[in-house]
Each structure stands twice: as C-alpha cells, then as structure tokens.
Amino acid sequence: MNKYTERLFNGIIKENPTFVLMLGMCPTLAVTTSAINGLGMGLSTTVVLVFANLLISIFRKKIPDGVRIPAFIVIVASLVTIVEFLMKAYFQALSDSLGVYIPLIVVNCIILGRAESYASKNGPVESMFDGIGMGLGFTLGLTCIGIIREVLGNGSFFDMPILTDLGFTPIATFARAPGAFLVLAFLVAGMNIVRKKMDEKGKPLAKPSGCITGDCANCTSKCADEKK
C-alpha cells in the first residue's frame, strides 16, 4: 500500500470522521433526514476539504505561524462560498434542503482539524489524498445515518418507497429532530462496544476528538496535539 492509498484507507476506515473520530456533529445531526441529503452534504464537505487541504499545503511555508488560523479560515470560507453558489446553480433542490448548513461547513471541525494537523505539515498531493479520504469517510458516515433515518422515518431508500410498499408504517420521529439524537446515541453506544473489543484485541481505535469528548475548546489544537 503506497502512501496515497494509505491516506484514503486512513480517512475512510481507520480514522473515519463520523464513526471513529466523531467530528462534525452539527451537520451529522442536522442534515441526515434522508440518505440523499447526507450524501449531498458529505460530498460538498469533501470538495471543500480537498481544495482547502491543497491550498493550505501549497501556502504552508508562506503563512506566518501567528496568523495561521485566521488565514485557514479565510481560505475555507472562500471555498465554502464557491461551493454554496455552485450548488445554488446546479443542485437547487439539495441546496434548499441543506440551507444554512452549507455555509456552516466553515466552522466544521474536520476541515480546520485536517488543515492544522495534516495539510500544514505535508506536501500538496498527500494533503489532497488526505482530504479525499477524510471527505469520503465523512460522506460514508452521513449517508449511513441518512439511510437509517430515512428507512425508519419515511419507509424509503433514496426516495424509493421500499418499506411502505410492504405495509410498514414509518416512525416519523426518526426523520425529525429527536430521531437524529437517538440514532447518534445508538451509534456512539455501538462504537463503544467495538472500541472495547478492539482494545482487548490489542488494536485500539483512534480516540474520538472534538466535541463529543467534552473538550470543544478548539478542535484544531486538540487534533494537532493528538496526531503530532
């Protein structure tokens, strides 16, 4: 496995932002009302993440250390603005249903976290692959949660009414706010079991970082400390 596929594997499986690192909880809860929304949000975050990593990695030697966080924020915010307008132009319906959560990609922990812990220390190509891996991992997480919530809450799978045809009455709560918390609660509990199993096997998973650990001071410094 060369270092590029290693980055992809790392992002999608080993340090999956949703399941393992538990980063970016706001969008994870808010936009996963249906599978297609989760997928759309994940892919838009991926685009921002890839280009943010690329640009930050290119400029990493030019950006003075003292103002690096504001500089990263400006780069990310510009990319988010571009993505927002592209989505308004080409994916009107998706852009309407994601609403304010598209511009809020700016404050997503994953993006600043990767910029700080990876892109500001590595070359452009590796950083891009890191962004693709992390982005696809996030997309995978959001789509899975979206599928669960859509199947339970709406009886459909990517807008195809599979369960309602079989006479299943959807549990509407799952498509609304409480369902998001509930699905995430079971996800965290499930991951706690997996984590314990992996610890016993001697192959511990990466620690969750970001808000779920109770330390939301700033994801950037925390991730940076942990990854080194």
């Binding site: 709560t173 609304r176 706010a177 409480p178 369902g179 998001a180 918390f181 509930l182 995430l184 609660a185 079971f186 965290v188 509990a189 499930g190 706690n192 079991i193 314990k196 779920i212 650990t213 109770g214």
Partner: peptide, 20 residues
Amino acid sequence: PFQGTAIVLVTAALMSIAFM
C-alpha cells in the same frame, strides 16, 4: 456502552421530543 456521551444523546432525544 451507553455511559458517557451516548446517554447524554438519548436524554437530548427525549428533551427534543418534549420541545416538539
């Protein structure tokens, strides 16, 4: 498995139902 964050999320779900 529910100790820690998971039970907090379950609580949040119940609070959310109440606020609905």
